[in-house]
């Protein structure tokens, strides 16, 4: 498998095969991630292709110090956010983000249950993004902060809050059963 830095170097020189290989490597991950913000597959396709177009057009400005996927996800998230705000299809809660003091610590282990996948869609956009990027995609809080334009501690706190919400939903369901 070709080294990603080499691929990026070839893409910078305009090699279309390098673009194609970068696309093949990252399209599934970006698509399934953005799919968590909309059930409309055409809408998700639009975000994905716009993210790739922007990334390829600005490939010269990509800094090799970060991962290509981190950069691509950041662009994809921005595309989704601007579109979602315009169409009002994802809930945004900026007030909570502004008042966050970052002192909240994670409480105990988090037990994943399949029903949570549906509940994640009820979280506001930032908590959903933090949860997906950290817990599902495996990015660090530093990388999540970079992608979402928040600090590392805010990312930790938002993840904690997201887990609390999911946990309480799971407990409510258990009681009902």
């Amino acid at each position: 498998m070709t080294d990603e830095r080499e691929l990026i170097g070839r893409a910078r020189e305009g090699d279309e095969r390098a673009f194609r290989e970068l696309y093949d490597r990252h399209v599934d991950a970006l698509y399934r991630f953005l799919k968590q913000y909309s059930d409309d597959s055409f809408c998700v396709e639009d975000w994905v292709q716009r993210a790739f177009i922007q990334a390829f057009q600005a490939i010269d400005s990509f800094r090799s110090s970060s991962k290509f996927s981190t950069w691509l996800f950041t662009i994809g998230l921005n595309e989704m956010r601007s579109d979602a705000r315009r169409k009002n299809i994802v809930a945004f809660d900026s007030r909570e983000l502004e008042s966050w003091d970052g002192r909240e610590e994670e409480q105990g282990d988090f037990l994943w249950v399949d029903a949570m996948k549906g509940w994640i869609r009820e979280l506001d956009e930032t908590k959903r993004s933090v949860f997906l990027l950290y817990e599902v995609e495996g990015y660090t809080h530093g990388e999540v902060g970079e992608m979402l334009g928040i600090t590392e501690s805010t990312s930790r706190a938002l993840l904690c809050r997201a887990k609390q919400i999911l946990r309480s939903k799971a407990q409510s369901q258990e009681k009902r059963e």
Binding site: Y31, R32, E45, V48, I53
Partner: peptide, 18 residues
Amino acid sequence: DLPNGEQKRRMWRALRRG
């Protein structure tokens, strides 16, 4: 959650045009 083959081809075509 994954795109099928046709979706991938469609996105690639749009990407190339762009």
